[in-house]
Design a protein around this nucleic acid. Structure first.
Lengths: 348, 348
DNA sequence: AGTTCTGCTGCAAACGTTTGTAGTCGCATG
DNA sequence: CATGCGACTACAAACGTTTGCAGCAGAACT
């Protein structure tokens, strides 16, 4: 049986309340007494039971982290950063995977609600109203999607998509395909909007293929459609799809970037490992994880705070994008990425 | 304020104990009453507080999952499988990352101990005695390492390493380097032992380079040493290191597999994405995650059970391994992998 | 000397559950 | 008619903490 606070009290000849205070309110207890208590606790191997503490304080010192797919390389860096950041603040993290299923999302938030002080909801697929409803059960911070009335951290993928399109147009591409992401994804809508606008402004045509599951397989599956569309460049919803597409094109003998340029989004670890190395939009996932944890712990109980943190993205030009058919005497092959850093704005 | 069992009791005009039983012991309560209670609970949005329940039952319905590095592509599939399997059995999962630090490992187990019914310790770097000591605080299942007296699930990497070496020797390689993994890793010792033996039996020489951190960077860093060693083939501790090595060799203009063959271990997602695609030893990580959860939940409280589950590995031959300098009229390029499946043995 | 203050500690209630025990009722049994 | 039983429900203690309140000693005021 593990030692309880009562064992420590008995062993050190004081009342349990004194033991409790020795740990959680040191200034209220005599230094000598405290030393005694701590010593007794040490030899008994006493560790406070956080669940019992939570029962009375209302704070569990746990947080929930819900992602669409742990195995999607986009998430591990975020999970890792969030977990380590949280632990640094003495919080433990439940991690759960929804398999991209909105129903599971809701069930998970509800199931976790009583056990955590808040939940980080990453790339949710539910509707805004559902999310708002859930936020009445437990404090929520949404990642990768702004929800009116809730704290959120998002990446400026619109800027990233714009940069990517401008990059492609600058290389001489006039017909570009957008490999769309999953239905219900805010990021996907954002990319689509920005890419469409950027293409129009630059005098290029954008054809949208999708929606698609955000997987490698689904990227491969769209190869035919890309070829039929007759475009010379593709912007994919994420690196995974870009990689799948490149593979499938390769199998068909289509050269990247010579015949078709491909640009991904996320700059996951694998973008540096493909041949050709992937040109992609870097999203600061680790920073997002940390920021989300900070927001959750900051706002404590006032659930209706509406801070929105926007993280900047940048274009990373590698080898999967090259000159297109309409190449003029354009700019040099390499292009300076924009300033990086974090912009944080609060809107009331 | 969330509804408590007392609110439900009040609303349905029965005692709290009846409400409790309506949920956890339906056969003890009149069907009609039960329906009443459930209805009241429904409208109040009542969900039992698992922490409070845990306080009295002693079972939290949570488990801990401790891994060396979430971002290491070896782990996400394991985490995903374990989490989903556990949730199917109504368990939630704390995930934590030790950054390959044995001290953090211990601290984490202790910190989690009171909040979970057991901990899955994956690829621990601590000593066996430390682990045994910790197992007195909380039920433990060790993954990727057998610990005497504790339940564990391991992969038969020895078999994998042997197959890999035999594969290389069969291709005509006589001098092979082993890119060692991290100090303290049982898997590493196992690979080393099996590879050395297999090389000796096949009349080849094995030079061991390491120990090394199990990262891509460290694989790259060993490229010089590999070249100096004058070997024609390399077996790496894991895919990550293999990929790093291939990259570094590529930068030096060394062709893989033409000049040097490289074989990895783990068959992570990236092994199919590198060029050339990586020959590697597939380890059933998802199955390991599920098996570990099963063992933990099965054994419940009798902590000193000593079951050992061994999962088979298999060699996946792709493009990073090719003919070596001593090629004779050997077997065909493709080689049949061994039967897969799960072997489970109990040793008392 | 009496009063107030300060620093410390003990008491007991509370948090939301579960569960052993005891009680009530109706009914069949002896 | 008393007894026993079965089905159900209420009571209350317990789990390991925290925390408002009260108590008490001694010091420092008036």
């Amino acid at each position: 049986m593990p030692a309880t606070i009562r064992d420590v009290a008995k062993a050190s000849g004081v009342h349990v309340s004194t033991v409790s205070r020795a740990f959680s309110a040191p200034q209220l207890v005599n230094a000598e007494t405290r030393a005694h208590v701590l010593a007794a606790a040490e030899v008994l191997g006493y560790r406070p039971n956080r669940a019992a503490r939570a029962l009375i304080t209302g704070r569990t010192h746990n947080i929930g982290l819900i992602v669409a797919d742990i195995a999607n390389p986009f998430f591990p860096p975020l999970i890792k950063a969030a977990e380590s950041h949280a632990r640094g603040r003495d919080y433990h993290v439940f991690v759960a995977d929804t398999n991209e299923d909105p129903g599971v999302e809701e069930e998970l938030v509800l199931a976790l609600a009583k056990q955590v002080d808040g939940v980080l909801l990453c790339s949710p697929r539910m509707s805004n109203t559902q999310i708002e409803q859930l936020s009445r059960e437990v404090p929520l911070v949404v990642v990768n999607r702004p929800v009116p009335g809730l704290p959120a951290v998002v990446m400026d993928v619109a800027q990233g998509a714009r940069l990517a399109v401008e990059h492609l147009v600058g290389l001489g591409h006039r017909e570009i395909a957008l490999l769309g992401g999953p239905r219900g994804s805010w990021t996907n809508r954002e990319i689509r909007r920005a890419a469409t606008l950027a293409a129009r402004n630059a005098g290029a045509e954008l054809v949208v293929l999708g929606p698609n599951a955000p997987t490698e397989e689904s990227g491969s599956a769209q190869a035919e459609a890309v070829l039929r569309a007759g475009v010379s460049a593709v912007l994919a919803y994420n690196d995974l799809m870009a990689v799948g597409l490149i593979d499938a094109l390769d199998h068909r003998g289509v050269k990247v970037p010579d015949q078709i340029s491909v640009v991904g989004i996320d700059d996951t670890a694998l973008s540096r490992r493909t041949r050709p190395m992937l040109t992609t939009v870097a999203t600061p996932t680790a920073a997002a994880g940390r920021a989300a944890v900070d927001m959750l712990l900051q706002h404590g109980d006032d659930r209706r705070t509406t801070a929105l943190v926007t993280l900047q993205t940048e274009l990373v030009i590698r080898d999967s994008s090259g000159p297109g058919p309409h190449r003029t005497a354009g700019p040099g092959r390499r292009q300076q990425p924009p300033l990086d850093g974090v912009a944080s704005e609060s809107r009331e």
